[in-house]
Amino acid sequence: MRCVIDSSARNLDSVSQEAAHNLQRLVRFASLERMKTVAQREDIEDEDQTFLPDRLQVYAHWMAFILLAGDGGKIMFKAHFTSTDIQSLVARALRKDIDRVNRQLISDFMREYCNLTAGVIKARLLDVGVHTGLSIPIVTRGFDEIWRVDRELSTELFSYASWKLKWPSGSVVCTMGTRADAWPSAAHIKDLNDHSGQESDLEFL
């Protein structure tokens, strides 16, 4: 896993640094597990992705994202994808002809994926006493990522990470940004596999 802490976060104490690190692990783990769940395939793997937080970067044409917030902290999770990659995934998961998977279905799939991923994160945070709420998931153009530079980099989020979920016919780039100095108890997140398999139903249909 590649973890990037913004320069403004260097003054974090060791507990907060540990919390930030655990949150990145948690989000990456949740994204992979939920993708396996919704796609109904086990051959999905994650791999490191270069991330330069102070540089413009657009990963794909589409982007689905969701926000967890509570107790002074927040996590933004984003999944960057192209329609064709997800189209084949949905067709296989739903056993549909690929031509019948339209843009709306793809968007709904990715929204649900974000929901499920955020649900796992939320549950694990609750285990360590952090209460959070979820926003609704949004699908928009990946190009909107460029506005992040001016908004997210300013003050709100200062811990970033990116990784790629790969399967034989496609991939999704995931990114996250968090402000974890408000959640020192996140340093206590240890075993990520304890709750795997929760909320596995594909509900967007």
């Binding site: 657009v58 794909a60 044409h61 589409w62 192209t82 064709t84």
Partner: peptide, 9 residues
């Protein structure tokens, strides 16, 4: 660009 839509990256 002679590419499919969404594949200009």
């Amino acid at each position: 660009l002679k590419v499919d839509s969404e594949h200009y990256f």
